[in-house]
């Protein structure tokens, strides 16, 4: 059934439209005036002012490889992050840990670990899927370089950015 939208009954002032123009101007010019007097809190002036100290702990910045308090890079090169990465930004070349090492039973370690930051979409799936709590998205977000090569984060760079991650489970330690 057709529904007829009722037309509003406009007064004369509404019909000639000019009062509404003035009312609109009053609003916009009010904003302009408050702005000119510096009464309005405006957006942040980015490179000079930053929000870094307010970033939450779960902020998803650049993915990094973290180390635990024993100085061990926690990644075991299981390649789950490589498989789940939606833009396929991660490339891992696994290597074998020699038998005389303290952590020989871990068996694998990443010989190379590359994240292409041009591809990375900061989704955090790698952090979520990692069974070893080895990859974390840290708070670094201003990743812009002048060449593609610099945008390719290699293992050394990732470990350096990751640093020490406290409060992780050390499941490879010897049982006491």
């Amino acid at each position: 059934m057709a529904y007829k939208v009722p037309r509003p009954n406009l007064t004369f002032a509404e019909k000639i439209y000019l009062p509404s123009v003035l009312a609109g101007l009053k609003i916009t010019l009010g904003h302009l005036w408050r702005m000119l007097r510096g009464k309005t809190h405006v957006c942040m002036q980015y490179p000079e002012e930053k929000w870094d100290s307010h970033l939450p702990d779960h902020y998803r910045g650049a993915p990094t490889l973290v180390s635990d308090e024993f100085g061990r890079t926690r990644c075991v090169a299981c390649q789950l992050c490589e498989f789940i990465c939606p833009p396929r930004a991660i490339r891992i070349t696994p290597g074998e840990i020699p038998t005389d090492d303290t952590f020989a039973k871990v068996e694998k370690y990443p010989e190379q670990f590359q994240i292409d930051m041009i591809r990375c979409i900061y989704c955090g799936l790698c952090e979520e899927v990692c069974p070893e709590q080895a990859i974390f998205l840290k708070k670094e977000y201003a990743i812009a370089r002048t060449s593609r090569a610099e945008m390719m984060h290699n293992k050394a760079k990732l470990i350096e950015m990751g640093g020490l991650q406290p409060g992780v489970v050390n499941k490879w330690n010897e049982k006491k």
């Binding site: 916009t28 010019l29 904003h31 302009l32 702005m35 000119l36 309005t40 405006v42 957006c43 002036q45």
Partner: peptide, 10 residues
């Protein structure tokens, strides 16, 4: 500039 000032921007 004027439009942004009217919209609380810079």
């Amino acid at each position: 500039r004027v439009s942004s000032l009217m919209q609380d921007r810079l």
